[in-house]
Design a protein around this nucleic acid. Sequence first.
DNA 1: GAATCACATAAGTCCGTGCTTATGTGTCGG
DNA 2: CCGACACATAAGCACGGACTTATGTGATTC
Lengths: 104, 104
Amino acid sequence: MTENDIFRALADPTRRAIFEKLATRSMNASALREGIAISQPAMSQHLTVLRNAGLVREERQGRFVNYQVDPEGLALIAQWFAKYRAYWPTRVDALKALLKDMDQ
Amino acid sequence: MTENDIFRALADPTRRAIFEKLATRSMNASALREGIAISQPAMSQHLTVLRNAGLVREERQGRFVNYQVDPEGLALIAQWFAKYRAYWPTRVDALKALLKDMDQ
DNA sequence: GAATCACATAAGTCCGTGCTTATGTGTCGG
DNA sequence: CCGACACATAAGCACGGACTTATGTGATTC
């Protein structure tokens, strides 16, 4: 689970699609395949890459494996981007709104 | 300059090193090579990738080409991460400090 | 307990990509 | 203008990665 693992995991558009789908709600590998044209082994391999990157967590439930977003990977990569926040043209207003959200 | 271009550009550790070096101060391609074991053509190719991703801007100055961080690419990718900010374990205090910095 | 299901792993193939060497293009100094 | 310099582009190669088919593993159902 290194910075490099995370960037390389997110470099693949299929894996980003998987991650984005998991961000809406946690689900198992079969459910993840719905709507994404991909074979079962390919999905399994992608999930392994995402898991090794710390972007996804797995939890066995009988013969199913439930997957969910792992905050650790996101935190690590958010830290990387924070180093360059000076270059972000982010509006202060948008940040204030975000802060308000988090306070609630 | 798509989301995919940016992620793929950042997937390479050498390109991240180049970008990080440029984030400290803008410089030309020769100066960028110092400290990074890389040939001149390889550096040129990496800079092309970073430029196409919108992560870097170039500005001709005589026979030199000065490179600097382009905020556009960072903004686009920051937007992507913002979608998953709900998963970030970011401290509210850290955000408040950031907000304070930006107000100044 | 045998078949089926959900998923992982193995092995092979193909294509993209990062490197190299060689050469091209444009700019400056003498 | 002519050599040197800063950088870009071309072409070829070698490796990694995403896919495939085939098979393995463990849990469930009847």
